[in-house]
Design a protein around this nucleic acid. Structure first.
Lengths: 188, 188, 188, 188
DNA sequence: TATGAATGAGCTTTCATTCAT
DNA sequence: TATGAATGAAAGCTCATTCAT
């Protein structure tokens, strides 16, 4: 792994677990076994590093997503949705990826970070809309745009509550009821 | 208004708009026309001030909520739920209270703040569980605890997406579909 | 005990155990169950309080000393000296008075405190010289002024080493050898 | 001289003349022509700087001492002791080193500093014990441990009284009488 | 006498960032 | 590419002191 990768990796971990503001460049150096000079050689400043972290994180999450959704084409809409949801819940249970999602919510809800990353956030959101809306569109009588917004929001809410819960959040049970609920609503 | 109130008010405003970490004590002093000494006279440290802000915000939000939920007793479960949800959506549209909700999500997703307020957050969460679960319990065949967790999560998600969306988030439409969906699920 | 006395007592205790610079007026207030206003009503400022503490401490130590040395007149010089020394060692073993001596050494060795109290320190030193010199004068061939200086210094050294030793300083044994040594030197 | 050396040197001078608590990091920076950042880059915190100062002072004092005590081996016990004592008195008369000894007493008698340096103080004390005890051991019928404690205490006392005396302390005369006294006691 | 709110200077420490090597 | 010494602004916080009550 290149020094740049090491730094990025350390930043992801610390931003997620300690928070962006609370993570000092020094701490990242310690974690990455790199020098301050190296950090500022590869990233113009802390804000650039933040953007790089966000981009890399999105890549990682998508890499997993893409590979799974490849074999989905032949299924019915409700099945495709169930599949997508299962995959999302799966991925946020993964301890490795849990951190990325946690970091995501930090970014969303912190005014300073959010405005620094607004463009990237919007891109990401559009990507999600693009994967849900076509599915929801196949169900007649639904305003698929609103439904897609709502679905994204619901997933976000469950994710957030799960990710930041201290102890025993019943994610598995909620996942099952949530998917079942959508099956019912979609008339499957 | 006492100096303590001035400080608290300034902190509420700045924490909500700028974020906790980005708000310096100096900024609060400027805003409140108070000295640093005064801040630390009334609040042991910045964390204590954060707690005071969190508590005060919860009070403000609840003051509105309580008055509304007074006339709910005679209604059926689905109606009571619809009422509750409408009130929540109403309150987070209020521009004054919007900021408090935004701050809430900041607190939830920032590790440092969250752990400083964990006890208060847990209390709040339990209060929400206690208002939803009895309603959901009236619908047979549902695991009302899991359902209450899910409902809270869904509301959180919609709130978060609305609160931090830049421009034109279709909150009203989502609200309607969301309430309708629950009516369907509850068999009303 | 009057509030002024309470404050003085609290100051003595804290100055001795925590050090003058490390002891805040607030800490004294807590300890004395008094308000800041009360402290500054009775003592013009922290330096005046320091002086008052030093004076009061000297009084307390002397009160004990005077009562003991009253019955000394008939004795021989070596006996009078032994008596004096025993009394001094006695008094610094007393846990109550230990603090006063500790405070004394702090004052002596801290440039800032020392210069604030120089006049009182000089008075005190002269008092000690006046009690040792007459005794040492009775021994021919001794330069009693130098001998008195030396004796004071030796006592100070033993006191300091004892007072600030963490655990098991052999004060009793040193006291015995020290007194015996002086008996030998005085030809008793 | 490296910046670290400059800072250490400035700290040594200011701690000795103004006292540890009264010396602010800012003052050290001014004195050393360094920035605050530089101070905390080289020393974790003010306490670490204090430790470094203490260690460096001990080195300076020992450098002088070691060179002198080299030619002592062939002498008798009383002569070796006289030699040691003379060297100690010599070294504390040196205006350069006087400050370091003064600082030493500050450290001893200030609870906060003392506890921050307890381990180093203990080491130092043990070293002194190890140089006095073997000499005192050669005189039969003496409890050499107690005697060594006492001797150290006496030297400390003389040193302290001399170092903090305003004007005309008869150090030379006391030195002579003190050494003579020990010669007598050791039966030389 | 006594209270404690309020002040503001100053403290130690942190931090992003720069730059000579 | 990489290092880490150095900077200086700004942070949170402490503290002696004042003053209206």
């Amino acid at each position: 792994m290149s020094k740049k990768q090491q730094i990025l990796q350390a930043a992801i971990e610390l931003f997620a677990t300690e928070g962006y503001e609370k993570t000092s460049i020094s701490a990242i150096c310690d974690h990455a076994k790199a020098s301050k000079g190296a950090v500022f050689h590869h990233f113009k400043n802390k804000d650039e590093l933040l953007r790089a972290v966000f981009v890399r994180m999105a890549e990682i999450i998508n890499e997993v997503g893409d590979s799974v959704s490849a074999g989905n084409e032949g299924l019915s809409a409700p099945e495709r949705l169930a599949c997508l949801l299962e995959q999302i819940f799966e991925s946020m249970s993964d301890p490795e990826q849990k951190r990325y999602y946690q970091f995501d919510f930090q970014v969303m809800s912190q005014p300073a970070m959010r405005s620094a990353l607004q463009d990237l956030i919007d891109q990401r959101y559009q990507l999600m809309m693009d994967s849900f809306q076509p599915i929801l569109q196949e169900i007649p009588s639904a305003d698929s745009v609103v439904d897609a917004h709502m679905l994204i929001a619901e997933i976000d809410g469950i994710a957030m509550n799960y990710l930041f819960a201290e102890g025993d959040y019943p994610l598995k049970e909620i996942q099952q009821r949530f998917i079942r609920k959508y099956r019912v609503l979609l008339g499957a």
